[in-house]
């Protein structure tokens, strides 16, 4: 049944036991993202150490898709360089915007491929992207910030 293609077991697992939920201190940046169509909100702390994401923690309220997807992204991108992380995010985004034709590359997206089915439900694509877009935003902001700091130090 189609409902199961949307609500994969992996998604419900992450929903029930979300990873990295609960904000950790000492972040490089904190971002707050909102799904304007349904009111779901997340706050995400990201710590960038020498160009590598050393920590992602988050908190928020939302549907199973947005919560599970934030859990997945926080787990998947921890330990990756900012460049590698941004490229994974791009792969995930492409899968979700493919209307279902792109089933996702498991070697890159790992648990993230469970969200391939979401692409067939246009109203839910934003839910699945909420945590990923927040992470992307946090990475760009961190880079801008650490870039500026590096420049300052050079002076």
């Amino acid at each position: 049944m189609e409902l199961d293609s949307l609500y994969q077991e992996v998604i419900l697992e992450h929903y029930k036991r979300p990873q990295n939920k609960g904000l950790l201190p000492n972040q490089t940046v904190q971002v707050h993202h909102v799904n304007t169509s349904c009111g779901d909100e997340i706050t995400l702390n990201l710590k960038l150490t020498n160009g590598v994401i050393s920590e992602i923690s988050w908190d928020g309220v939302g549907c199973s898709i947005s919560q599970a997807s934030t859990s997945v992204v926080s787990e998947l991108l921890k330990g990756k360089s900012s460049d590698a992380a941004l490229s994974v995010i791009e792969t995930f985004q492409a899968m979700l915007q493919s209307k279902g034709s792109d089933r996702g590359d498991e070697s890159i997206l790992e648990d993230g491929v469970a969200f391939a089915g979401v692409a067939k439900f246009p109203a839910r694509v934003k839910c699945a992207l909420l945590g990923w877009m927040a992470t992307k935003d946090a990475i760009s902001q961190s880079l801008a910030l650490t870039g500026n700091n590096a420049k300052k130090e050079q002076k």
């Binding site: 409902l3 609500y7 169509s37 349904c38 009111g39 939302g62 549907c63």
Partner: peptide
């Protein structure tokens, strides 16, 4: 059960409700 998830399931049974704010 988040309203968005509930609404999705109801839709699958042919029931159109509004979910959100």
């Amino acid at each position: 059960v988040h309203p968005h998830d509930l609404g999705q399931a109801l839709d699958q049974y042919g029931i159109a409700v509004r979910t959100g704010h």
